[in-house]
């Protein structure tokens, strides 16, 4: 763990200690098999969650499937 950095997560500013996308998902408590992640408008492939670092100011979207028509 490291000093917290400020990111924007699903439209809200948030301080996180996670150094990677994998750590962030673990910090939130999300099942990685059921979500998808976009970092600064680029898809983060699931295979790279551990390698993908986070920097202050990053914009993340974490989505999943919900009911829809």
């Amino acid at each position: 763990m490291r000093m917290p950095i400020a990111i924007t997560l699903n439209g809200e500013r948030r301080e996180v200690r996670a150094a990677s996308v994998a750590e962030l998902l673990a910090e939130i408590g999300l099942d990685t098999r059921k979500v998808a992640v976009e970092l600064n408008e680029e898809i983060v492939p699931r295979s790279t969650y551990a390698a993908q670092g986070l920097t202050s100011g990053d914009q993340l979207e974490i989505v999943h499937f919900i009911g829809g028509g």
């Binding site: 997560l9 699903n10 439209g11 809200e12 948030r14 939130i28 408590g29 999300l30 059921k34 979500v35 998808a36 979207e61 974490i62 989505v63 999943h64 499937f65 919900i66 009911g67 829809g68 028509g69």
Partner: peptide
């Protein structure tokens, strides 16, 4: 079945999911 894509609720990561 059609499904929508939406932001997860960060505050409630254990909410039941469609899947």
């Amino acid at each position: 079945v059609t499904v929508a894509v939406r932001r997860v609720n960060i505050a409630d990561p254990n909410a039941p999911m469609l899947q």
